[in-house]
């Protein structure tokens, strides 16, 4: 059953088209990953699905409700965890959770019980009385997720849930996302961390420049990627002329990425290294390293979106 169904969704800001007529659906009980480089339209799409932005055109159906006209009905059954914490600094963790529950009509006793349960579940029970502003980044993120699920939503929207937090907190959050999904919550996840998507998502939609270019099951994407042979050369110097000549000389192979000092080539067959080494050396580009790359979802992302891995890394660091 499709719990979210989006048809020809568009969002324009004046002349700028942030989302250009996207179509996708999310199955009930699945973890759906929404991946794309910065500025691809991920947050704009989430904002339209959750009621923070009005679509220019298109339709949204969420759990049988019109996601545009009946947004208040939709907001009763969805939980939203934005990319930045949005709780109240001066209120304690416990008070924040109790307050958030009150917005959904949960009775006093029930919301206090649920707040205590969630603090325990997120290992925040010792710090529940501390003001939110005194929390670490990881604790803030955990409490924001707890606030997003205080009313037991049917669908949870998570925007970059593990960005910028410590390894242990990120691990706990991943476990919690999996556990929520096992309990029947549908998860809509956007992330810069391809590893998160690889570990958590049942299906992934790739969005680039406002268009969805692929939606597929994670396992199929990985199998497809693993059929590829990838070699990466790190060289001392690369200039534009050499790059162009390289592309012309080896036009039978795929060169999905060329960046400052690195050339990455991929092929459906095993790659013979010597011709490439010789070419680079003869063009005064000393090869510092040649390594075999094990294809992962990151390779699929790079292949599909055309984003260079270096840019992807910079985007991740920027987010931190």
């Amino acid at each position: 059953m499709h719990i979210i169904e989006v048809t020809q969704l568009q969002k324009h800001f004046g002349d700028f088209k942030a989302v250009k007529g996207i179509d996708f659906f999310v199955e009930q009980d699945e973890v759906f990953g929404f991946l794309g480089p910065n500025g691809a339209g991920k947050t704009t799409t989430i904002n339209m699905l959750t009621g923070l932005a009005r679509p220019t055109a298109g339709t949204i159906q969420i759990a049988g409700h019109d996601g545009i006209r009946e947004i208040k009905k939709v907001q009763r059954i969805i939980g939203i965890v934005p990319d930045e914490s949005n709780l109240y600094d001066d209120m304690s963790g416990y008070e924040n959770l109790v307050f958030c529950a009150s917005l959904y009509g949960i009775k006093k006793q029930e919301r206090e019980k649920r707040a205590r349960q969630l603090l325990k579940q997120f290992t925040l029970d010792d710090t529940g009385s501390r003001p939110f502003k005194a929390y670490s980044k990881g604790m803030k993120r955990k409490l924001t997720i707890a606030a997003g699920i205080i009313h037991n939503p049917t669908i949870l929207f998570l925007d970059e849930p593990t960005t910028g937090i410590d390894v242990e907190s990120a691990r706990q959050i991943r476990t919690m996302i999996r556990s929520l999904n096992n309990q029947g919550t549908t998860i809509f996840l956007t992330t810069h961390y391809i590893e998160d998507a690889e570990r958590l998502c049942d299906r992934i939609g790739f969005i680039v420049e406002g268009r969805i270019i692929k939606v597929e099951e994670t396992q199929s994407l990985l199998q497809e990627a693993q059929r590829e042979h990838i070699v990466e050369f790190k060289v001392e110097h690369l200039d534009e002329g050499v790059i162009q000549e390289f592309l012309q000389s080896f036009n039978q192979i795929q060169v999905p990425r060329i960046s400052d000092q690195t050339i990455r080539i991929s092929s459906g067959r095993p790659i013979e290294l010597m011709p490439y080494m010789e070419f680079l050396t003869s063009h005064n580009s000393k090869v510092l390293e040649a390594k075999l790359v094990h294809p992962s979802l990151e390779e699929v992302f790079v292949h599909i979106t055309g984003v260079e891995i270096d840019r992807l890394k910079k985007e991740k660091e920027g987010k931190k």
Binding site: K72, Q75, R76, E84, S85, N86, L87, Y88, L103, A147
Partner: peptide, 14 residues
């Protein structure tokens, strides 16, 4: 500014 108002806008009240 602190985005906590967004939380209220996303709640199911008019």
């Amino acid at each position: 500014k602190s985005r906590s108002f967004e939380r209220l806008l996303l709640s199911p009240i008019s």
